[in-house]
Simulated assay, not measured.
Amino acid sequence: MSDADSTADLVEGNHRHWDERVAIHTRSPFYDLDGFRAGAEPLDRFQLDELGDVTGLDLVHLQCHIGLDTLSWARHGARVSGLDFSEAAVRAASGLAADIGLDHRARFVAADVHDAVDVFGAGAFDVVYTGTGALMWLPDIERWARTAAGLLRPGGRLYLAEFHPLADVLDDGDGVTAVHDYFARGARTYEVSGSYADWEAETTHNTATEWHHTLGDVISAVAGAGLRIEFVHEHGTIAFRRCDALVADGGRFRYPDRSARLPLTYSLAASAPS
């Protein structure tokens, strides 16, 4: 079997994994769809501040899952498109858009992220957005960056908010001890039942594969795709309890006061040539 065939098999395993978890996520308190329908804001404050006013802009959300972040940008005035490889996730996102009356300015498409230019057309968007928990599912970060660049109009912006890759190597308990090699690349396949949204849920497709990309990998890929890096910001909060040491803080989690702190998420903005 070639490396390409092996990678395709791993991605297909992830496809089955995520398809199965859509139903778990749509009914879970973690995503709280009832709260979202009532107006709750799932985006971090720093995302809203950093990306700024999106009124009237065409925004595409790559790897959009069930569409909460996508539709949040629509609520803030953007015309949005969401793309995800899970057909079940796209159906859920489309249904949610109809529920909140935004189906006229939101569309969702099931496709591989690397096919996004073929799906939407080159230079179709003012903003390409990627939210937390997306990049580790991609085997080729450089190919992803080229795809993002291909979707942008002249002067358009790539904006991503993502889990900090340093967090991937830290102990699940104390959150500060390194237990994995930060510089190790390649596929990491593991078995996990349930979901981060409901660990007690019964699941069948429990094999998942992630690919570790360092912060330098991501920055270099974006720059290599011809985009100009505007900023890279590191943040001390995260949307879920990544390790036991974290404490709740206004719907997010952070390290306790007077403890050693490490970055938990980061954000990056880059612009296409005008």
Rank of each mutant, 00 (worst) to 15 (best):
H164M: 05
A4C: 02
P273L: 05
Y196F: 12
W199F: 14
D115I: 06
S6N: 14
L96E: 10
G175E: 10
L102N: 06
V232N: 06
E41Y: 04
Y255E: 13
A74I: 06
D58E: 15
A98E: 15
A239M: 08
D44L: 15
L51I: 15
G131Y: 07
E234K: 11
A221Y: 05
T7E: 13
A89D: 10
H17C: 09
L262W: 10
D115R: 10
E234H: 08
R185H: 12
D249W: 05
L166W: 07
S28Q: 02
S2C: 03
L33S: 12
E191W: 06
D198K: 04
L152I: 00
G216S: 14
H205S: 05
P154K: 00
V113T: 09
D44Q: 15
E210I: 15
D115H: 08
D118T: 15
F125W: 01
Y266W: 13
D174E: 11
L62H: 03
G67A: 11
T207E: 13
G123F: 00
H213L: 05
M136C: 13
G52Y: 04
D115M: 08
A124W: 03
A116S: 09
L102G: 08
I100G: 09
L96H: 05
H213D: 06
C243N: 15
A93S: 05
A149F: 00
I229V: 10
Y255Q: 11
L59R: 01
I229M: 05
R91N: 13
H76I: 03
P29L: 00
Q63V: 05
W73V: 01
A8F: 02
R21F: 01
R107T: 15
D112C: 03
R252K: 12
S259F: 07
G39S: 07
E20Y: 00
D257H: 08
V127C: 00
A23Y: 12
S274H: 14
D84C: 05
I219R: 15
